[in-house]
Structure formats: C-alpha cells, structure tokens
C-alpha cells in the first residue's frame, strides 16, 4: 500500500496499525487470451473512501466485480474482514453468502427490479437473505429510503422514477444488508449531470458517516474532494496511487499524467 507519509495524521496512524478491511493480493483476471487485470495489490482500511479512475478498458469495473466475486479472479486472493477467498477454488456457498452480505454494490445501470415496488426492491434481500420478518424489513427499508430522500416513492414502481431517483433507490437497496463495504461501479455515468448531483450528494453523506467505499468513477471533482485516496488504473494495472489531492494535482508517472491531461485539458 502506498500513501504519502507527509499526510499521515495520528488518527490515520492508529488505523494503519489495525488489519485493513479489504486486501487484494496479486489479483489476475483473464478472459480467454485477454488479460484484464495483471497483478493488482490493494488494501482498503475501514472508513476509507477510495476512488478508482482511468481510461476505458483499464480494468476498473473488472476489479470491483472481482471483489464481490461477480467475476471470480483467475488467480490471487481476496481477503475481506478476515475471510479469505482464493482464486481457483470454488468458494463455499456459506463463504460466498457472507461475502455478499458484507459488500454492497451499486451498478451503472441501476438494475432495480422493475416488477417490484421500490419498497419491495429494498426489502426483498432483507427477508430472503437475512431472514427478517416483512414488517421489520419494510420499516428498515423506509428508514433507508428516507435517508436517500425517497420515502414518498416507496409504493411506486422503478419505471416511474427518474434515473437519479432509481440510483438512489439502488443505493438504499445495497445498504439494506448493512454492508461493511460499498462498491460503486460508475454510478453516475448513465445520468444527466443534474441527476448525477443528487446521487453524488447521497454518496458524500455516506462517506461523511464513515462508510468504507470504493468508487469507480469519471467524476474527477468527486474523486478529489470526497475520497481519501485515488487510484489510477490503465491496461489492467495500477499506475498511480496516493492521497487524492496529491495524485490529481501532481501525478508522478507518465501514464497518469497523460490520462489526467486528457481529462483536464479538454
């Protein structure tokens, strides 16, 4: 793990001493002959917000999906809250379930269940996965929907909500299982800039309340202002990593400089 020593504070030193929430060791992912991830090592501490940026095809989304095993890595190890999952071994149903409950994911295309009401979208996993009773689940769902500002949409169907609203509901759905880690896969890329703002506001609030988050995004301002750490990926590798302001303003590698130029000097 890298991070500029000059920016460490006493609080951060304390946390560095404890075990990181997530550890990725030598993650490789191959699709046939194509190598999407070429050896990724990453650690994320509790309450940390990490932004991953980079050109398309750099493997950012693939990395995220390797964490919650939507794409099992070809080789390497994923350790989450002490539970290790080795690549190549079929994870036990138990381990997989525990992983999925600890990690929430928000998708670029929201993926809400269109045939269920908003409330049911948020309650379903609570009932089926956590075994909560319907009344309890619905109560918690309403709390979460209030938190993202959409309690009034509870009895409607997702199709009647705007993109920004749907994404906020998706966030509520992911939060319903009380995850320790939230993964965001380009959450605002399918949204108009204005609708994207409401989603970013919710994500900002989550970060301020201490949620551990990994966000793949093209939103540079968000990456710099909300995240603690920024990672730049290209061609399946991490090419730059460090404290957000440092990486965004003063990248050290050529590849990172090239990417940030393309983004900033349009």
């Amino acid at each position: 793990m890298s991070g500029s020593p000059a920016h460490e504070s006493p609080g951060m030193l304390q946390e560095a001493a404890t075990e990181p929430l997530l550890r990725l060791e030598a993650i490789h992912k191959r699709f046939g002959a194509f190598e999407a991830l070429s050896g990724i090592d990453l650690q994320v501490r509790t309450r940390e917000v990490v932004a991953i940026i980079g050109p398309s095809g750099s493997g950012k989304s693939t990395l995220l999906r390797c964490i919650n095993q939507l794409e099992p890595p070809t080789s390497g190890r994923v350790v989450l809250a002490g539970v290790a999952l080795e690549a190549g071994q079929e994870p036990s149903r138990d381990a997989l379930m525990r992983l999925r409950r600890s990690v929430g994911m928000v998708f670029q295309s929201f993926n809400l269940f269109p045939h269920l009401t908003v409330l049911r979208n948020v309650s379903l996993a609570q009932e089926r996965v956590m075994g909560r009773r319907r009344k309890d689940a619905d109560e918690i769902s309403m709390q979460l929907l209030s938190r993202v500002g959409l309690a009034d949409k509870a009895s409607q169907y997702p199709g009647r909500c705007s993109g920004g609203q749907q994404q906020r509901i998706a966030i509520a759905r992911a939060l319903a299982l009380d995850p320790q880690l939230m993964l965001f896969d380009e959450p605002t890329s399918s949204l108009d800039p204005e609708l994207g703002l409401e989603v970013l506001a919710v994500m900002r609030e989550l970060a301020e309340n201490g949620m551990t988050m990994i966000v793949v995004t093209h939103e540079m301002h968000f990456a710099e202002s909300v995240s603690d750490r920024v990672i730049i990926m290209a061609d399946g590798r991490i090419v730059e990593e460090g404290e957000s302001a440092q990486v965004m303003r003063n990248p050290t590698t050529e590849r990172a400089k090239r990417f940030l130029h393309a983004v900033n000097d349009r």
């Binding site: 409950r101 998708f107 998706a170």
Partner: peptide, 10 residues
Amino acid sequence: KEAASAIGLS
C-alpha cells in the same frame, strides 16, 4: 441477475 447476486440472493 447480477443485482440479484450482488445483494446475496441464492
């Protein structure tokens, strides 16, 4: 299918 997996549904 992905969303269903991600929220832990069997």
